[in-house]
């Protein structure tokens, strides 16, 4: 028996919004420690790594490890049926063919159940080495979203250049060039609005706007985003999910031909 309950179904809705543009289907690995998803987009350019810890759920039970292949589009449709104040419970048997989503209104007067067929999937796991990154930048997620959207108008890719002065984002295309510089914030009174740069070595990396614009869909999950970068290795873009876990996106850099 697997059962996981979240009082705030809104968290799960936001998680689905954060992955549905990148993934069509994914395997949800459920164990005693929680729920994990690791999946690449179809083009093998980016990877989503989602971790929801069991202790972050309001109720969690997983008698045996389960790998459940799910259609992200279908799951997203189901979660759109949850009211914003509803609680959500995920439930499956030990050898499941289906997973059930149960939504309960705060006054317990409405109970909705949606059963979704599971799908058989080939497992394609990537071993991500433990890396110490040259630059770790933390910044408001809204600001990062704005920068990605704004610069996407000027080119297909955005160059991230990080130095001890701060981080510079730039894009260029047929119409010209755009650059946005962010300096480290001086006062750390408001953590949510702070920009912090932890640099060992300067980095300069170029990434596809198309993927960055998918990652920023996780913005509503967390006020801050963390960008971990080293030259010539994939970017890690991380959003915390309250006290329950995190979503990390890995994105391969572009290289000059």
């Amino acid at each position: 028996m697997f059962e996981a309950r979240l009082v705030q179904s809104a968290i799960l809705k936001k998680v689905l919004d954060a992955i549905k543009d990148l993934l069509t289907e994914a395997t949800f690995e459920c164990s005693d420690s929680g729920i994990q998803v690791q999946a690449m987009d179809n083009a093998h350019v980016s990877l989503v790594s989602l971790n929801l810890r069991s202790d972050g759920f309001d109720k969690y039970r997983c008698d045996r490890n389960l790998s459940m292949g799910m259609s992200i589009a279908c799951m997203s449709k189901i979660l759109r049926c949850a009211g914003s104040e509803d609680t959500v419970t995920l439930r499956a048997l030990d050898n499941p063919e289906n997973i059930v989503f149960i939504f309960e209104s705060p006054n317990k007067e409405k109970l909705a159940e949606y059963e979704m067929k599971l799908i058989n999937m080939d497992q394609e796991h990537l071993g991500i080495p433990e890396t110490s990154y040259s630059c770790i930048v933390k910044m408001p997620s809204q600001e990062f979203s704005r920068i990605c959207r704004d610069l996407s108008q000027f080119g297909e890719s955005i160059t991230f250049a990080c130095s001890k002065e701060g981080i510079k984002f730039s894009a260029s295309g047929d119409y010209g060039q755009a650059t946005i510089k962010l300096a480290q914030t001086a006062d750390a009174d408001n953590e949510e609005e702070a920009v912090s740069v932890n640099m060992q070595e300067p980095v300069k990396l170029t990434f596809s706007c198309r993927y960055l614009n998918c990652f920023i869909k996780a913005g509503p999950l967390c006020a801050q985003v963390q960008l971990s970068m080293s030259n010539d290795v994939p970017l890690v873009c991380e959003y915390k999910i309250g006290d329950i876990g995190h979503i990390r996106y890995y994105l391969a850099p572009k290289i000059d031909d």
């Binding site: 690449m40 083009a43 093998h44 350019v45 980016s46 990877l47 394609e124 796991h125 990537l126 071993g127 991500i128 080495p129 297909e156 890719s157 170029t206 596809s208 290795v233 994939p234 890995y250 994105l251 391969a252 850099p253 572009k254 290289i255 000059d256 031909d257």
Partner: peptide, 14 residues
Amino acid sequence: TPMQNDLQEFFALI
């Protein structure tokens, strides 16, 4: 436009 790398070149398939 720079070439897009494949993520699998950076990580090992397991």
